[in-house]
Design a protein around this nucleic acid. Structure first.
Lengths: 170, 170
DNA sequence: GTTGGAATGTCAACAAGGCTGACTTAAAGT
DNA sequence: ACTTTAAGTCAGCCTTGTTGACATTCCAAC
């Protein structure tokens, strides 16, 4: 399954014979996999009447503590009004803390509170556990390939954001 | 990039040392890649004030012409009221044809009209072109791995649907 | 034949989460 | 002093998901 026909041609360049059908299967795989990918956190979020928007905000605040609202806006690719609605409820519910910037007092720096970190942990545990199972089932070579294809699928702008997030950590 | 640490252990079993950080990167890659994945069709859909829901319906009707409404419901994982709203506009706009079943006249079999096939072509051309570029950039081994991980990420129910779709074709 | 249940369609109401546009406030920059 | 920027807010709109209630049509069992 998931065979890919390929051929070596002159100069080490590899040419893929990608039929429309093979590409279509990839598209469908992406559709179904993304549903699985979000299914587990969705269950937890539903308990506390949050949505995926809250999850995304929590995720990226966790990864980049102290990030500004503008920064988060750019990463999430939504309008400030959209983000604000979500952020307001998270702050009201005591999951996120917003601190006025020291250098630039117009900016608000966002942090997860302990409660917020608790929810983040629950959500990402659920998501990671599916991810881990999939990785384990597919094997290390498959995982490397998976990552390569995903990176190639991003827009250059997204790829820039994605990589800068990775560099900010280990 | 996307290095994965692995080690051979007794009996040929491969154990992956998956740190939370590596899994988190996979999660973010999935998030950004899915955005890229839907970006191109979204532009086309916006022109004619359709949404992703229309795209999904068109895609699966194209892949399984003559499918019933119930069948489509199960694949898309939405309620019949939700699907019906989308389906109604597609039928009104002359993109989809709904034929009463011959065997079971309660069922409606769905087909794309020529106009519908035209739009399907435009949408999937856009989506496939990004997919093709990503596949080419990543190489054939990566593609095989990509597919293996995606399949492992699906729920068993989704995997069943996914595979039965594939079997129905080449 | 009549009736029960399944498949479909429709109406209404509602919520999440996108969007735009207009406007305020406060802090920087120039 | 004036402009720009960061953030927040209000109002309104759209898509797309949800539930619940109800009509229709047809098959199949009784």
């Amino acid at each position: 399954m998931a065979e890919v026909q390929s051929a070596q041609i002159h100069g080490g360049e590899t040419l893929l014979f990608l039929t429309d059908e093979q590409l279509r299967q990839g598209i469908e795989a992406m559709f179904f996999a993304y549903r699985g990918f979000t299914a587990d956190p969705d269950l937890i979020l539903q308990e506390m009447s949050y949505g995926r928007a809250h999850h995304r905000a929590i995720h990226f605040i966790h990864c980049a503590p102290g990030t500004t609202v503008n920064n988060l806006l750019a990463i999430l690719g939504v309008t400030k009004q959209s983000l604000n609605r979500v952020l307001r409820t998270l702050i009201e519910d005591g999951l996120v803390e917003s601190r006025v910037g020291r250098m630039d007092k117009r900016e608000r720096h966002l942090f997860l509170t302990e409660t917020g970190q608790g929810l983040e942990q629950r959500l990402s545990d659920a998501q990671r556990s599916r991810m881990r199972a999939a990785y384990r089932q597919a094997g290390p070579d498959a995982v490397a390939g998976f990552r390569r294809v995903l990176e190639a699928m991003m827009d250059s702008e997204m790829r820039r954001q994605y990589k800068s997030l990775r560099e900010g950590r280990g």
